[in-house]
Design a protein around this nucleic acid. Structure first.
Lengths: 107, 107
DNA sequence: ATGCAATATCGCAATATTACGATTTTATTA
DNA sequence: TAATAAAATCGTAATATTGCGATATTGCAT
């Protein structure tokens, strides 16, 4: 077939996988890293920094945003992206929960 | 084009993305969770537990193994999988490093 | 209203992922 | 050595992802 069977897994497992999928492309990791640096970034600047085209960069930004990690606002004529710290921390906790539980059980 | 441009990113960024890619499928998250539970599992049992076919399960196991997270050994006639705790902790640290640095910088 | 600069969306081609049935390989046991 | 059971691999079809050029949209300034 070729379609991921989400329905056979728990919601928590799917959440972890979704979050990981968002981080599974190096461009998106770089983008998050860069936004963390400057806090309030233009798509154009990010695009130049990571050396991908504006459309590609914009698409990656949407993927990160859809995962709930980004906030954006217009200042002047440009859109400024920044990281939603609360969501970022929640994401970290979700991962750490998974890592810790697995660690505690194994061996 | 359609090929991920790994070469434009740092090695660390690619490592994070690779690790995330390994976790980006819910079947693999479930498998890790299950192996953590029983510590020493048969492919067959995992396959039944997560309700995917034996070949599919085996392929996912290879992906997790290629990421360095699994150990395996033959006991009797079957192969027993378990989590490489050292690598698992390293993976967690890699993620936490990324999360923490981003957190520290932003805002 | 018109022009401008920034961002988002569309359409597409190349490639990657996912899942499974069929088959082969592997390691033990009779 | 032959039979076995378990796991890996092959082949394939369906779908998803990635990246970019072209185009549309958006919000401000004149």
């Amino acid at each position: 077939m070729g379609v991921t069977k989400r329905h056979i897994h728990s919601m928590r497992v799917n959440q972890i996988a979704d979050l990981a999928k968002m981080l599974s492309n190096p461009a998106r990791v770089s983008i998050i890293e860069y936004i963390g640096d400057c806090d309030g970034c233009l798509c154009q600047d990010i695009s130049e920094k990571i050396r991908l085209s504006q459309p590609t960069t914009s698409q990656h930004l949407q993927v990160i945003k859809r995962a709930g990690i980004l906030k954006s606002q217009f200042r002047g004529k440009a859109q400024y992206y920044s990281i939603d710290l609360r969501k970022w921390e929640q994401a970290q906790e979700l991962f750490n929960g998974f890592f810790d539980v697995t660690k505690a059980k194994c061996c």
